[in-house]
Amino acid sequence: MTDRNMALAQLEAGEQAIIEFKDVNKWYGDFHVLKNINFSIKKGERIVVCGPSGSGKSTMTRCINRLEEHQKGTISVDGIEMNDNLKNIETIRKDVGMVFQHFNLFPHLSILENLTLAPIWVRKMPKKEAEELAMHYLERVKIANQALKYPGQLSGGQQQRVAIARGLCMQPRIMLFDEPTSALDPEMIKEVLDVMVQLAEEGMTMVCVTHEMGFAKTVADRVVFMDAGEIVEANEPQEFFNNPQHDRTQLFLSQILNH
């Protein structure tokens, strides 16, 4: 309930919520995977979601662009409610970029084609303009020299940076990251996190499911801890790490920080 109160308090304070979960419930068959999620995210906020596996953190994130459907409650993004209306879903997806754990680049297209695909077909941008935009973002993730290669020829870290650039090419208002560094070798995690930190500093609204607590400490405005389909605790990183309220949070933190 504290989260709910917090969300209400923000609304009362007149702060604009860009993503809002209200009493969201979701089941996979009989399995109750999201239980009464109430949460709102302001424009420009950086949210880190953490928790043990199976806690529903990915599912919650994927509900934001309706890769998963929720069965009860309402989710609104940018003031548009997510329901079966395909038009709404497509509108939201244009404005919400997503980065996956396993990159999900399109292996039959070159890096450049991966980036220009959505701008050309969804935004109806001329090819030339889309390519300029793509090169701009490839330079930002420091990978412009690989533009004509295929995803299979790049390392994991490079692929994930391409995936981030691909998301940015749609010039989204929100970026979702679903465990972006979990499939990477330790040496490659940093190059991806660097790009994400840079993005955060530019004021992008970000929701990031990750176990990188260092990233959470330096970048997040709020850290959300989930377990068993519920938001257990959500707080500013300073408070969250130094003074966790719930014993479940304390246990989780002690397990991932002390080894």
Binding site: T91, R93, F100, N104, F106
Partner: peptide, 13 residues
């Protein structure tokens, strides 16, 4: 892989 469908969906295609 399912991820290919999801990546295409997530882009708004």
């Amino acid at each position: 892989p399912k991820g290919q469908y999801e990546a295409a969906d997530a882009m708004g295609l």
